[in-house]
Simulated scan of single mutants.
Amino acid sequence: MATIGYARVSTTDQNPQLQLDALKAAGAARVFTDHGVSGAKTERPQLDAALDYVRKGETLVVWKLDRLGRNTRHVLEVVDALHERGIGFRSLTEGITTEGPMGRAMLTIMAAFAQLERDTMIERTRAGLAAAAANGRKGGRRPKLDRTQAARAAELRAKGMTATEIGKVLGCSRATVYRYLAPEPSAAPATRLNPE
């Protein structure tokens, strides 16, 4: 019976290739991938599509348990729903399968540990941001473009270059170019960039 894969990356900048390669190596006949969907979001269009697509006797496989659900409860709900439909489940990294009672028990334990790991990471991040704020530093990612590059993007746009072309010149994505060329909230509405 067929194996159906599901992959997820939290941001549009992340590359799911590692997951895709592992799922293909595991024999996935088809892989559904959600891009730019964090673990906390309830809407995962490609997960929904994968769950609709997979049939009785088949197996849904993920690279890692935390790719499947928002939390332990959600992971177990998805796996229980699959089990009721006669569909198996495998997580490659943890080596978990729902075959037999031991596999299901291990799944419950691993899902709980995955949840604990996520919660601990969130707690550490919050503590780090609070400590940085107390010391007068601003948290968050470094900007993709510095002021000089942002000004260069505006110059190139004024010369008629597309966002994709500007991205190639500056070594960034088209989405990044769009963000830097977006008008300030208080500014007058700007002309929309030409579609590409």
Rank of each mutant, 00 (worst) to 15 (best):
D146T: 10
M106H: 08
P16D: 07
E117G: 11
E155D: 15
L51C: 03
F89R: 07
H83Q: 13
F113V: 15
W63K: 08
I96L: 15
T125N: 05
R137N: 01
L107A: 10
R124D: 03
S91W: 10
L156P: 05
R55M: 10
D66A: 06
K144R: 12
G5P: 01
G88C: 02
T59Y: 03
G27N: 13
G171Q: 10
P45G: 02
Q46E: 14
E77D: 15
R90L: 06
K41A: 12
L129G: 02
F113D: 10
G57C: 00
A25G: 04
E99K: 07
R137M: 08
I4M: 04
R124E: 03
M1V: 14
R73L: 13
T42V: 13
L129T: 07
G139C: 06
K24S: 13
I4L: 10
L116Y: 12
G136T: 11
A188R: 14
T120I: 12
I87L: 05
L92P: 01
L47Y: 07
E123N: 00
V75T: 15
A112Y: 10
T93R: 14
G136N: 09
P101V: 14
C172F: 02
E58M: 10
F89E: 09
D13P: 00
M121I: 14
L65E: 02
E84F: 06
Q19W: 11
D48I: 07
R67G: 04
G140I: 13
D34Y: 12
G27S: 15
P16A: 09
G95C: 06
R104D: 11
L51G: 04
P185E: 01
E155K: 13
D66H: 03
G27F: 12
A154V: 09
A153S: 06
T164M: 11
I166D: 05
V54W: 03
T120A: 14
A2T: 11
N194G: 11
A29T: 14
T59L: 03
R126N: 10
A133Q: 14
D48F: 03
L60Y: 06
L60N: 04
R70Q: 08
A154K: 14
W63E: 11
A182L: 08
G95H: 01
L68H: 07
H74T: 01
P195Q: 14
R152H: 12
R174W: 00
V78R: 04
L18R: 15
G140T: 12
